[in-house]
Nucleic acid binder design. Structure first.
Lengths: 134, 134
DNA sequence: GACTATTGTACACATACATTGTACATTTGT
DNA sequence: ACAAATGTACAATGTATGTGTACAATAGTC
């Protein structure tokens, strides 16, 4: 019946709402679930669904537009566009490395076993890169 | 000659300084490189090394103390203590899952290949769990 | 034992960030 | 031409982050 809830954000997670929106949309975009040409919901609509202000959604959209995923136009809405593949730079690599270490260390501190962490990682890799180019 | 630089924080990385300190110390603690009984540098000393205010370091120490890694006492300093293994709860699992997805999606968006990401992950797992209990 | 240095803590302040309220600009549809 | 829909701009507010400064507790020294 109802639409599948596109996104779900967790207030009180410490992570800013607009960052959660960016992160989840980016994951969908990377996984190819939002192909070029697709229209995203209007900022006001998504804002209501998520329980935040429309400017918060707008900020998220703008960040994704900066990153090359979306085209934003007044009165027309947000559209997914074709995006050129990026060449990773050193900055991106070290930043990823640092954050991954922090995240996994936190998981270990919380008691997650190496096996549980590895399993989670595998499941995610399949999810994100399933049906995409190798 | 000089001591190995224990930590290195990156201002302008977006991540708050005190969080970077917490994350890096936590990684060392998880990896067993700071065994119980070890003394951490005084907040003012570490603050100078890192180029931040000593209250910023103090905040990081307090967070790790809350987490059960350190004992803090006025005049005596910060000491690593024996810490009971945690049982992971659902909250920790879903939080880890969400953040991992966000992080890996970001890496993919930046152009890192699945192989590069997996490789980074392997190296990290070895680093964090090397010589620790299975 | 008194004094001083060392060390973590408390608290007020400044600045930046995140979110919201409100109004505006642009496009679409009738 | 008009109204509705949609993204944008900007001020206001609350929270987080970092700092300056003073305080409290412990350790070292004579």
């Amino acid at each position: 019946m109802g639409e599948a809830p596109i996104l779900r954000i967790d207030l009180g997670s410490g992570v800013p709402a607009y960052e959660q929106i960016v992160a989840q949309l980016r994951a969908l975009l990377v996984a190819g679930k939002l192909p070029a040409g697709e229209r995203l919901p209007p900022v006001r609509q998504l804002a209501i669904d998520l329980g935040v202000h429309h400017n918060t959604v707008a900020l998220a959209y703008r960040e994704l537009a900066e990153e090359g995923w979306l085209e934003l136009r007044r009165g027309r809405g947000a559209t997914v566009v074709e995006r050129r593949e990026r060449r990773p730079d050193a900055q991106a690599r070290t930043e990823f490395s640092r954050r991954l270490e922090a995240l996994v260390a936190k998981a270990a501190a919380d008691g997650l076993s190496p096996e549980a962490v590895a399993k989670e990682f595998d499941a995610l890799a399949r999810k994100l890169w399933k049906g995409k180019k190798r």
